[in-house]
Simulated assay, not measured.
Amino acid sequence: MKMKIKTAADILMTAALPVLMCYSIVGETAHEVIGIAMFGLFIAHHIMNFGWIMSLFKGKYDLRRSVNTAVNALVFLCMIGLMYSGIVISKHIFTFVNIGGAMTARTIHMLCAYWGFVLMSVHLGMHISQMAARMKLKNKALIWSLRIVFGIIGAVGVYEFISLKFADYMFGKVQFVFIDTSASAVLTTLQYLSVMVLFAYVGYTLQMLLKRNNKTAVQ
């Protein structure tokens, strides 16, 4: 039962990611609601993985474990930054909170949103093998077909990464995110989804390389 809940939470968080990125089209109220739900799922995810948290200060850290822990820590920082800044700049749900520093919070929110999107996608990719095992995907033909399909989507993601100016937002070159509100919500979500698949593929490849490095080190 716990494993089913974990899988459901992971799927919902994955689905929410690209939707949250096109907030201007989805609507500000919906964006805030989905953001709160995302943070709740994130907390639930960590509660269900409490054993991993407790093991952080135990055992040795090889390269694979160090990279995994670093990615997880950065994702955690981005989520905290998003929740804090989201509360500060909220126009609907948290209007009763008056902390101040809205301009700084907007910058934090944008940086954490884009870095968080990339890092969460990498994190997802690094755990694809585990998710496949949970879903009992063992058919080699199906697995290779999925790799090819996601590889093609990831290739589209390279174009969309450039088109959506991810690098400019990630490194603070642009202060305000521009989204064409006249564009199709579905199409825009698919654009961000392709970028997510791109970095999930990066995470998957990184994990495979780290696993191979560990086997070589043991030998």
Rank of each mutant, 00 (worst) to 15 (best):
L12Q: 00
K165Y: 12
L20Y: 11
Y169K: 10
A155W: 08
S85P: 07
L193W: 13
L56N: 05
L12D: 01
I108M: 11
V67I: 15
G51Y: 06
L142W: 08
I93D: 07
F39H: 05
L74S: 08
V186M: 13
K173E: 12
L63W: 08
A133W: 01
H123K: 14
K6Y: 05
Q207I: 04
L137F: 09
I5W: 08
S145L: 08
L164N: 08
A73C: 10
V19T: 06
A200E: 04
M38L: 15
M83F: 15
K138P: 00
K165E: 12
R134Y: 05
F57E: 04
I162Y: 14
I25Q: 04
T205Y: 07
A8V: 07
V195G: 05
M54F: 14
H92N: 15
N139V: 02
C78R: 00
I5H: 00
I47E: 06
I80Y: 04
T95R: 10
A105R: 01
W115T: 05
V186K: 13
G81Q: 06
M135H: 09
I43Y: 02
G154I: 03
H46G: 05
N98V: 06
V195A: 03
Y23Q: 11
G59Q: 02
M83S: 12
G35P: 06
Y169L: 13
L56D: 03
K6W: 01
L206E: 10
I5V: 15
I89P: 04
Y159F: 15
W52L: 02
S121C: 07
I87T: 12
I93R: 12
L209V: 08
M135R: 10
